[in-house]
Design a protein around this nucleic acid. Structure first.
Lengths: 243, 243
DNA sequence: GCCGATTTGTCCGTATGTATC
DNA sequence: CGATACATACGGACAAATCGG
């Protein structure tokens, strides 16, 4: 739901592009025209445009007009650009989905875990392991570690539904930044045990460190995907973000 | 090389964070203080800050101060966040590197190629295949397709050095936007022929569509990496970019 | 728990520079 | 060359969240 003015303008333009009111390789109205259309300042218009640029909807070039470079395509399976959750991605693709909690237990970080997760040795953590089923196939293994001091009173019940709903709405934690890495690794014993890997011996892995508004990394997460149900999207732009 | 004012401020703050003048989990001076330090308007300061936010150096939260969340780590091998070229990544990691051009030939896009590359059937393309050696091991297979009408007169000589230097500096093409996808796929015959895959049967693949300032997709590129020499980095933030 | 000071978030209007057409 | 369009920068105003007393 758009709240601020620039966000409404962004959402409106995004929608018009997606529904081909502004089609691929056509131009948007100029910034000056947009200020009239939306009754706003040029600053606000440019703020909205910069979001469209970052997300690969348009590109701008000094002197020329604002060009639409969005195409619908993307027949993808599992897109992980932005912050789409497992559930959202499954819904978007029209798949059935289910989650099974293998375990949820309190542990204390040893050196090995500390190195991998960027927590400190001795930190008390919730260790959560979940299997994600898509169309009844075990395709994703989710490993999560949460700081017990932040994610208080986590239960299997919550893990089965949505941990993030709980953190944001119940505990009022503000999730600010997530630093993620995408790698490909050989399948380990755990992967082979819980997932249906068929003839793949590798996995696509997205690991992430999540920070709250206190600058505390309170979560480390590792999503291990069977390769054919995985896609990471990204738009790289020249060098600017606001204008 | 920083040019604009906000870019200089960005570069200076980034440097001070990387050299721990502002260390992890400490605060930057407030926006008002920064306007005095850099003798600039708050708008310009915020423009610089927004770049730091996107790149995961800092995070902001209304009411509280600007927190540094950058840590050096990154013992990575091959990072592909931003737009780091093969050569830059190799240099950054202190590796030796070499490129071998397997072939460079003109082709006409058939249906299969058109589907994969988003070019149109009948488009005349340069088809370039290169092997990237790191520390004398064949680890990356680069497949590129360029529109002949844009990337005029491409030669093996140029492909051996840097195609992008040629496009940007000789042909004066403005490279604007690159839409990329990261996937993991089973190795095909070509991969097995040219790369030293050892026991991996999968590859990490970055494919990208590159647009020039005319909104024309003039390149499709596919980098096929042996998994252990690959890492894709990303920072996801709440919802804002300029402020 | 309230209040006031501080800090970031949003928005406006304007001016000037510079690339494109 | 002039007109148009985007890029950069300034300064001011108010809103909303945070934090300390």
């Amino acid at each position: 739901m758009p709240e601020s003015k620039f966000d409404k303008i962004y959402a409106d333009l995004k929608n018009k592009i997606e529904t081909k009111v502004f089609s691929f390789n056509s131009f948007l109205p100029s910034e000056n025209e947009l200020t009239k259309i939306y009754s706003s300042s040029r600053t606000t218009i440019r703020r909205a445009l910069s979001e469209l640029i970052i997300r690969g909807y348009i590109q701008t070039n000094q002197g020329s007009r604002i060009r639409v470079i969005y195409e619908p395509i993307e027949r993808n399976i599992f897109k992980i650009g932005g912050i789409e959750s497992f559930k959202e991605a499954a819904i978007r693709n029209g798949f059935s989905y289910d989650t099974k909690v293998v375990h949820l237990e309190k542990i204390v970080a040893d050196e090995k875990i500390a190195t991998r997760t960027s927590f400190k040795i001795g930190d008390e953590l919730y260790d959560v392991l979940r299997i994600r089923y898509i169309n009844n196939k075990a395709l994703i293994l989710d490993k999560n570690y949460f700081l017990v001091s932040v994610a208080k009173n986590l239960t299997e019940e919550i893990a089965k539904k949505s941990i993030y709903d709980y953190l944001e709405n119940e505990l009022k934690i503000k999730i600010m930044t997530s630093k993620r890495k995408m790698t490909t690794e050989l399948a380990n014993l755990e992967d082979k045990t819980y997932l249906e890997l068929e003839n793949y011996n590798c996995l696509a892995i997205v690991s992430g460190r999540v920070f709250n508004s206190d600058g505390i990394q309170f979560e480390y997460t590792e999503s291990r995907h069977r390769p054919d149900y995985f896609c990471f999207e990204d738009t790289a732009i020249r060098h600017k973000f606001n204008g």
